[in-house]
Amino acid sequence: MIGIAPLFASFGGAIEFILTPQTSNVTGGNTVGGLDQVIELMLAQLEVTVLALALSILIALPLGLYLGHKGVGEVAAVGLGNAGRAIPELGLIALMAAVIGVGLGNLTIALAVLGIPPILTNTFVGVREVDAATVQAARGMGMTELEIVRKVEAPMAVTSVFTGIRTATIGIVATATIAPLAGVATLGEFILGEDVYGTDGVLAGAILVAVLALVLEFSLAALQRRMTSKGLKLRPA
């Protein structure tokens, strides 16, 4: 165990790295860190996270709703979710960089590979769990199939869908940290570039990535509460 003082020094150094640009022997005389660079890299990580998440939702949500509504493809939808969890993120990004190439577009696709399975599986399961009697009632009221999906199944599956989106977001934003390996500068730049940014930079990167991930998680939780239909909220959980 180490004392409190060196611990403070480590984290203190990291905070200083975040707030003010510094030049030192460790950084090879280059000016690194500081709020400007921190904000730029954080926005870059947010950008690629949002892009990959949007792509994942665009593919997985309609597919999940469709398969769930039709009640087909359970093995594929659930199996894909299981297989998706087994993909090592580091391997995926490295493979993509080595085989397909580096850059924002390729990275977005690779990250979407991580985001699609949880959203697809949870959407499918959420729709399947809607009471068949409810769907029959909607049909009896004269709703078209599309209306049933839009007005009945989707709102009732919101909790499950959001569980999938939150899982996807956590995976994507975490993996976006190693994006520099695929040629896209994110906060991982500080983490992977210890030679240039020093240990302060590495720790600063870790703090910033954790903050970014938690902000995203809390925002999505808040959004989930807003998206849940009022009628469903009244129901005892």
Binding site: V173, A174, L214
Partner: peptide, 19 residues
């Protein structure tokens, strides 16, 4: 536990390093 789950692993590892 949700907070622990949301913190990216790389970040978690590195935050523990000084300790």
């Amino acid at each position: 536990t949700g907070i622990l789950y949301a913190i990216p692993s790389i970040s978690f590892f590195l935050l523990l390093l000084p300790i």
